[in-house]
Design a binder for these strands. Sequence first.
DNA 1: TTACAATATTTGTATATACAAATGTAAATT
DNA 2: AATTTACATTTGTATATACAAATATTGTAA
Lengths: 148, 148
Amino acid sequence: MNVEEIIKTTKKIPLESRTLIHLTLVHNQVNEIINNALKPFEVSLQQFNVLRILRGQKGRPANLSTLNERMVTKMSNTTRLVDKLLGKGYVNRAVCATNRRKVEIIITDLGKEALAKMDKAVSKAEKDAVSNLSQNELETLNTLLDKF
Amino acid sequence: MNVEEIIKTTKKIPLESRTLIHLTLVHNQVNEIINNALKPFEVSLQQFNVLRILRGQKGRPANLSTLNERMVTKMSNTTRLVDKLLGKGYVNRAVCATNRRKVEIIITDLGKEALAKMDKAVSKAEKDAVSNLSQNELETLNTLLDKF
DNA sequence: TTACAATATTTGTATATACAAATGTAAATT
DNA sequence: AATTTACATTTGTATATACAAATATTGTAA
């Protein structure tokens, strides 16, 4: 990826700015790859992540604030995200018996089946997205990202 | 930044996935910093970038496709983004005399003044965002991001 | 027990973005 | 010149997101 070529500039960009632009460009590229992988399943990346979190609960329900806490990109509106999954029959929603303020969300069998298919597509896409980096380079990248 | 802590998981995440999650988390964090810096000026990051591109034109007008080409995050709708800047008096828009399909956009003096202020705030925010990385580390990070 | 604060979620509203279709203009082909 | 194709932008529509306010429930303290 050539930053200057992509944004069509010949000017010298300060290292700090260039790094941040670079980060955005890579993020956009990765996102496009993952989104394309999810497109056939008609779920957004956020919805996919929520399904994965719910599966990780192994039967135990999750409430909205737990979901939000565990999401990679925190959202202000988990309610409406769950609405979408509900509409697809991928999750069930029920008021918590012991604390009626809470809402308990669990993944359905249909959701699990769909998720299994998505998983394959996404993990392939993830490998594609980083295919030009060696294990060592990935390790180094993680170490550098840790510093943020 | 600790990935596992942020998304509250104790599971071992595959290196490829972890890198991509990491990238998203860092991107989100950086974006928040820059957006906060721009908040007092009531422009989005996209609007700020368009203003910078226009200033870089040094008087020459830019049309919408040129703008879109040079933006860090390409948008499907540059028209409405420019509408916003027009509403703030930061740009002028006119139909191109030689090719009436094209629209010529230039930054106004008011736009330049506002941009000068934003620039200071943003470059401070950019330095903040990468303050934990040395010049050397930034170089290495750029090299690794180039591989995507 | 009433009043107040804290928690969890939902709803309203404004803005942003993605994608497709529509519009207007220019260039190329017959 | 008329028709087709390509180009540049705009508009419509659906969905996504950010943020604040509203609602409902629970816990706590006077």
